[in-house]
Amino acid sequence: MREIVFDTETTGFDPKNGDRMVEIGCIEMIGRVETGKSYHCYYNPQRDMPKSAEEIHGLSDIFLSDKPLFADKADELLEFLGDAPLVAHNATFDFGFINAELERAGKTAIAMDRMVDTLAMARVKHPGAKLSLDALCTRYGIDRSHRVKHGALLDAELLAQLYIELTGGRQIGLSLAAEGSEKEHAVSVDDDAVIAEDRPFRAPRPHKASAEELAANTAFLEKMGIPIWHRG
């Protein structure tokens, strides 16, 4: 199954109050394995960037001034998303901003039944614990040492790893690709199934003893006299 893990950066907390989305990062997964395909874009919000928001993601008015408008890139984003389920952390926040931008651009909103919220999943698995992306990465041993500030694509990459852990985990296996291939081979673990990519087929080995092996075994036992398991 194809899924998209994504994250957004914004000018604030509420699109109804004029806040805008300024960045989106998306990671494609198939069968809970990253395919290497991603989508990333910055947007000019056509408004000022509050200092409090800039301190979180580092995106300034000057940096965003020459970036495209969301409306000019909306079709490109929708094409990448397709009809896949969309995974986000505190997903109602991200869905709210994407749909607000789509409405401004005259596009159809994304149905909420496509939403997969890793915050809600984590709340069930770890009630009472800290459930921020940082806290959950620490809990699951996901390396975030390169995360100095929030960034949509970087956070989506971290979230993809977290999503795998929340849905059962993944064991990275030895690559079976041909020489020169960069494809990663992995074993995805869901509740009751283990699926491995490109595992070579091997015919079952025969386990029934041959007539010669049976005769050799009989001759060996005859040399033993009375075996210990036949003694009273």
Rank of each mutant, 00 (worst) to 15 (best):
G169K: 12
D198C: 06
K130H: 13
M21W: 03
D155C: 09
D75K: 06
V124W: 02
I195L: 12
A211D: 15
I226K: 12
L166W: 02
A111N: 13
I27V: 14
I142V: 09
V22A: 04
E54T: 09
L153V: 07
G232V: 13
S210W: 01
D191G: 15
G106P: 01
E165R: 14
N90A: 04
G36H: 02
N217R: 06
F70S: 00
V116Y: 03
I142F: 04
Q161P: 03
R123W: 00
Q171H: 10
H150N: 11
T118P: 04
T10Q: 04
G225M: 08
A84I: 10
F13R: 06
R32H: 11
H89F: 01
A100Y: 05
Y140W: 12
E222T: 08
T218I: 14
E213A: 07
M29V: 02
G36W: 01
G232C: 10
T11I: 08
R32I: 04
R147K: 08
Q171P: 07
P204H: 05
V5N: 09
F220W: 14
R104G: 00
G25L: 04
I164V: 15
A219T: 04
H57Y: 10
P68R: 05
M1D: 04
D191V: 14
M112L: 13
A120C: 06
G96I: 08
Y42F: 14
T11Y: 00
F80D: 00
K16H: 11
Y39P: 02
I4D: 01
K223C: 11
I110Q: 06
V194Y: 10
H57V: 04
R2A: 13
G18A: 09
V124P: 00
D155I: 01
A203E: 15
L214Q: 09
G36Y: 02
T92K: 15
M121A: 03
R199P: 00
G168N: 10
T8Y: 12
D190E: 10
K67Q: 13
L176Y: 06
R139L: 15
T8D: 10
V124G: 08
T138H: 08
A91K: 12
A216R: 05
K37Q: 12
E222C: 10
A186D: 15
